[in-house]
Design a protein around this nucleic acid. Sequence first.
DNA 1: CCAAAAGTGTTCGTACTACACCCATGC
DNA 2: GCATGGGTGTAGTACGAACACTTTTGG
Lengths: 221, 221
Amino acid sequence: MNYTYQYPHPAVTTDIVIFSVRDNALQVLLIKRGGEPFKLVGLAWRICSHRRELDECAKRELHEEAGLEDVYLEQLYSFGKIGRDPRERVISVAYFTLTPSEHLKPSAGTDASDVKWFAISELPELAFDHAEIIRVARERLAAKMEYSTIGLQFMNEEFTLSQLQIVYEQATGKTLDKRNFRKWILSLDLIAETGKKFAAGAHRPAMLYRIKDPDRVDIIR
Amino acid sequence: MNYTYQYPHPAVTTDIVIFSVRDNALQVLLIKRGGEPFKLVGLAWRICSHRRELDECAKRELHEEAGLEDVYLEQLYSFGKIGRDPRERVISVAYFTLTPSEHLKPSAGTDASDVKWFAISELPELAFDHAEIIRVARERLAAKMEYSTIGLQFMNEEFTLSQLQIVYEQATGKTLDKRNFRKWILSLDLIAETGKKFAAGAHRPAMLYRIKDPDRVDIIR
DNA sequence: CCAAAAGTGTTCGTACTACACCCATGC
DNA sequence: GCATGGGTGTAGTACGAACACTTTTGG
């Protein structure tokens, strides 16, 4: 079946930058798909059906490609440069998301071997203009880390303050003083001790914390 | 001539929120056009041709509808709610701009009587989802006033500190202390005295200032 | 001389910065 | 007992907030 218009219409896609902090580094989830004009890894993306909302398209892509649900998802920016897809004019409404990498489930629709994390500092050559999209997403993330509580969205159910500090350091690109970071994050009253401890080697075990209101992202400062 | 695709494609438009501070109030430029599905005023918008970049579409719309050139223009967000245009699926890539209202020229393409400024606090009923777009733009503007030098983009060639303070107060929605505001804005080293004075009634004339680097918008704080 | 807006400093509190040592554990 | 990361307090500084009176002009 064909669809006809009186003037040219672009395709609209939702592309998603999936961030996680893994192995003490900010990483991005990239996918290698067959049937694309580039033989390269790239972001998760899909054409947005005319019967779905943009946010819904992004959510479905996130679910089907990465097995992620109920994660923080924010529209980033729209990229529409002529020629970004050599096949036709494509307007890409980009989103970004933050997740603890443990939440990633093997997905139904995708061969797991084609989905891989890459450190932001060691990205391979990327399909389309996805390098540019990731660059913009990284800037937005770094900025929002400073003035919102978005950083907590990287965390698992339970985490130590050192793990949280690493997340802040990796996502902002700044190193932080341990004492000052702890004072600051505790003063925000966003996390609480669980009472449990986490022993991870030949040293004093760390207190475990949880997020008081995990779904909430607020503007602070 | 017709254009045919194997699956439905949406139309993509660029919609522009044009802000100015006039009569001591934040205002938005709205347009009433014939041939639209709503008999209401709305934002300046146009279908983005498949051979033009998104930014370029926005610039042309700004130029042809409002006679504005060389103004600060920033992509805001993309709105694509199903049904936002009752005729077909439309993805609107929204932009916003800031201008001194004196820069507005009578435009060639539009009947001047159909272009009008409205105070943000006294908006009429609006076409499409333009009320929502303006709401988002207003939030973004207020936020950026706090951490960037975007506010100077509202100013004319020469202006007084009182005028500038009114711009900041109207765009952020906060009232400011005169002495603190002056200390702050001067400490940024963004503006300089022109040496001239501006006499406007039965009171002491105000010093006129100019922007040192008018095209520049920086992140501060 | 009166009304109106322009211009100008100081004090206080708070929030960020810098900085070094003891603690609990596994091996 | 030693290596490893976990945990803690204080002092200095810089920035934002509060606050009131004098100056210059037009009428």
